[in-house]
Simulated scan of single mutants.
Amino acid sequence: MKEVRFFYVPDAQHREELPQDEAVHALRVLRLQPGDEMFLMDGEGCFCKAAVTVASSKHCLYRIVETLPQERAWRGRIHLGIAPTKDIGRMEWMAEKATEVGFDEITFLNCKFSERRNIRTDRMERIVVSAMKQSRKGWKPQVNPLCSFSDFVAAPLGGRKFICHCYEEIERKDFFTEIGRSTGDDDITVLIGPEGDFSTDEVRLALKHGYESVTLGSSRLRTETAGLSAVMMSQLARRSERALLSCRASADGEPSA
C-alpha cells in the first residue's frame, strides 16, 4: 500500500504551492513527481486531497482534487497554561504528546518559582506541526509566547478555569471529577506550575479571578507529566459523541467512519 503523505499548508484551499519547508521535504526526501497524490492539512479543520502539478528543484505546486472537512473529536477548547521547565526538552516532549492526544492552545507562564524565563516559540511551533501531521489532527494547537502569570489569570477567558497545585492548606477538588460534571461545550483552561509549584500568592490571585482550585491526584507529578495528564483528562471528559461512537464501533470490529 502506498504511503499517505500529509503536509501542513495554512489556507491550503486558496494557494497552489507548498510552503518552502514542506516543499523541501516533498521534493528532496519523498521525491514527489507530477501526478503524485498528497494530502494537505490547513490546521483549521480541513484536509485536502491534492495532486502534484509541478515539481521543480525548489517549488512544489499542486491541484486540489477533493476537500475533506474534519469533525472535532472533542467539545469546547482545551487551553493549557504551563510554566516551562529548565530542561526545555521535557517541555517539547510534552507539547508533542499533548498535540497527539489533542488540545487547542498552549501558553507558557512566567511564575515566581519558574526555572526558565524564555522560550523559542518558533521551535515549539515546528514540534506541534510535526505532531499534528503524525497524528492526523485537523486543527493545529495555537502556541503562545511566554506570559506573566498575573497577566494571564487577569485575562477575560471564557469557560471553566482551573489551577492545579499541591498546597493542602488551600481547599482543592479533584480535577477529573469536576470537568466530568460539566455539561455542554464549555471551554477548559488549566494551569500547571513549575517544579517548585505556584506560590501560595499566585494560587490565591488565580482564585480571585475565577479559577477553581484542583488536584490531579495523590501523586507528585513532574511539570511535563502534569501538563500531559491535564490534557488527557480534559480530552476524556470532552470527547464528542461521534468520537465515542467511533471508539465503540472499533471495539466491536466495525470500521470507523
Score class of each variant (00 low, 15 high):
107 T>D: 03
216 L>C: 11
182 S>P: 01
238 R>P: 07
108 F>M: 09
170 I>Q: 08
50 A>D: 02
256 S>M: 12
168 E>W: 07
208 K>S: 15
62 Y>N: 06
45 G>W: 06
183 T>N: 00
186 D>I: 00
45 G>D: 10
135 S>K: 13
175 F>M: 01
36 D>A: 11
185 D>V: 02
183 T>M: 04
88 I>T: 07
162 F>I: 02
124 M>N: 06
214 V>S: 06
122 D>T: 14
97 K>C: 00
117 R>A: 04
71 E>M: 14
30 L>T: 05
98 A>C: 12
41 M>A: 13
19 P>F: 04
52 V>Y: 02
132 M>Y: 06
2 K>I: 10
203 V>I: 15
233 M>R: 01
122 D>I: 08
60 C>M: 10
49 K>P: 02
68 L>G: 05
202 E>M: 12
6 F>H: 15
27 L>K: 06
211 Y>H: 03
164 C>E: 01
4 V>D: 09
115 E>P: 01
137 K>I: 05
158 G>K: 05
2 K>G: 08
204 R>S: 13
82 I>V: 15
181 R>C: 09
231 V>T: 03
101 V>T: 08
113 F>N: 14
217 G>C: 11
1 M>E: 10
57 S>Q: 14
233 M>L: 14
49 K>C: 07
34 P>C: 00
116 R>P: 02
148 S>G: 14
168 E>C: 07
217 G>V: 09
254 E>D: 09
173 K>V: 11
73 A>V: 14
60 C>A: 14
120 R>Q: 15
233 M>H: 04
214 V>A: 12
231 V>C: 08
130 S>V: 08
207 L>R: 13
88 I>E: 11
193 G>T: 01
257 A>D: 08
126 R>T: 11
202 E>F: 05
159 G>V: 04
109 L>G: 02
65 V>Q: 14
248 R>K: 14
106 I>D: 01
229 S>T: 11
99 T>L: 00
106 I>T: 03
35 G>F: 11
99 T>Y: 05
190 V>E: 05
228 L>M: 10
256 S>R: 11
15 R>G: 07
86 K>P: 05
11 D>H: 12
111 C>E: 02
247 C>K: 14
239 R>N: 06
35 G>N: 10
54 V>N: 07
40 L>Y: 01
254 E>P: 04
32 L>N: 05
236 L>C: 14
39 F>C: 10
232 M>C: 13
182 S>A: 09
76 G>R: 06
126 R>A: 13
230 A>T: 03
207 L>T: 09
193 G>W: 00
100 E>Q: 08
168 E>M: 09
21 D>Y: 08
44 E>L: 12
110 N>G: 01
163 I>T: 08
126 R>Q: 15
140 K>T: 12
99 T>A: 07
131 A>G: 09
129 V>K: 10
174 D>V: 07
66 E>A: 14
228 L>Y: 04
148 S>Q: 08
